[in-house]
């Protein structure tokens, strides 16, 4: 999803709102990889957290990207 929207990953990663939201989820280490425990019982990597945040709070970012794709 993020790969279809060039630049989105970097721009969201630096947003304080995203960082604060992301940091509010517990962190677990699995085989030297870090995941957030989100949705109660799912382990999500940073890209998945970013997609979830955009879908919840900035869905227009994906829509704008899609328009640029066309």
């Amino acid at each position: 999803m993020l790969d279809r929207h060039p630049g989105l990953r970097d721009s969201v990663a630096s947003l304080p709102e995203f960082i604060a939201w992301n940091d509010s989820f517990p962190l677990v280490e699995v085989d030297a990889e870090s995941f957030r425990v989100a949705r109660g019982d799912q382990l999500m990597d940073r890209d998945q957290m970013m997609v979830e945040w955009i879908r919840l709070f900035r869905p227009q970012l994906f829509e704008e990207g899609a328009e640029n794709d066309r």
Binding site: P26, V37, Q42
Partner: peptide, 12 residues
Amino acid sequence: HLDSGGQFIAAA
């Protein structure tokens, strides 16, 4: 088994 510190009971 994975000790998540009680962050979940089980995860899939």
